[in-house]
Design a protein around this nucleic acid. Sequence first.
RNA 1: UGACCUAUGGUGUAAUGGCAGCACAGCAGAUUUUGGUUCUGUUAGUCUAGGUUCGAGUCCUGGUAGGUCAA
Length: 390
Amino acid sequence: MKRVVVGLSGGVDSSVAAYVLKEQGYDVVGLFMKNWHDTTGVLHGDCPFDDDYNFAQMVARKLNIPFEMVDLSEQYRKRVVDYMFDEYSRGRTPNPDVLCNREIKFDEFVKAALKLDADFVATGHYCRKDSIDVNGKTVYRLLAGVDPNKDQSYFLCQLNQEQLTKALFPIGDVIKPEVRRIATELGLATAQRKDSQGICFVGKVDLPVFLQQKLQAKVGNIIEIPKDFTKTNNRVNSDMLKDIASEYRYNPLDGKKVGTHQGAHFYTIGQRKGLNIGGTPEPLFVLAIDVDKNIVYVGQGQDHPGLYRSGLFIPKEDIHWIRPDMALQIGKAKDYQIRIRYRQPLQMGKLNRVDEGMYITFDQPQRGIASGQFAAWYLDDELIGSGVIA
RNA sequence: UGACCUAUGGUGUAAUGGCAGCACAGCAGAUUUUGGUUCUGUUAGUCUAGGUUCGAGUCCUGGUAGGUCAA
């Protein structure tokens, strides 16, 4: 009998995942990860971590499976939280949950599971895996979950073949309401628990407060860029990949000062809340930040041209193929469906592999392309590859 | 130290003398395993002292503050 170690988080998804595995005849072990125990900046709720542990334990008892706990706090801090601080300090917008999966759940956690003699490791992600034969070699495919509303494949966009080999996603072909129904039917304590939100393991935080643990607050200017500012408008007609894919760079003379902020690195492109500037007919959105000069550039209205770009660039060292056998050769281009954030409907676009990296161009301009976030490319249901936006 | 104009939530603006409204910001909730977006709800105002009127943000007089023109 094959042994599966399932990451029990104390939520309903991993609870049902454990149940499904058991039904499938696996020798199932529940393993709870303790990755964080600081509440700085955490909104409402004093200490959710103990709660999670207790719920996970209750579920394990109910399912009659062994239950273990592993503390990966040290690794999580080093490999996810430090990366977060570092990215924000450079004026970028990291995605800690993608890193959490690559570095913790499908690395450190797997190591812990192997110590428990695991053959496979399972999670409660809404995604699927299958395998095909390519030139006599088994290749694993990462597929979207069948629930279009909950598909979480995006968060796994940095996994590699080795990691997929050991992975099982028991609830990928079930829709969320069905998961809730199963949990309710089984009388699992987690059946009605609210879905988790915010940074995985840390929780819903007030980001500026959280970041101020490491990043200094410092007052700077907010500059409003007019809607008809030509530098942003000209871009739309450009043919040069490099031009289309690069960020808009402004300088203070391109607009006028409309207020002050507490630190440019606390903001991200597309952001509306937190500027504290009123009196405009339309809301202000962040168009760009300059952490060196400590300036936040804003523009008025959802349709401000500075909010949209038709392309992005990924440096070659940040290109990742879940399917290495499909890696695009230098000089080649190919159409893909792409998303640049969780739950975004897939967008039509083209990958252009050049010597220095990958340019992605979109058929429709995209709102709020943020450096540090991940672009993930799909062919229908299958996640093929991903990369960090420069 | 002459004339004129203006004054309404935190900000920008509406209201034939008849229930002070809208937008933005803020706050709260919903949505969301990243940031962000979006949706819903909500706090908060007539510069000041008098007067006219059944009734004043609105009309009259003084004050205060800001602005424009004239020098």
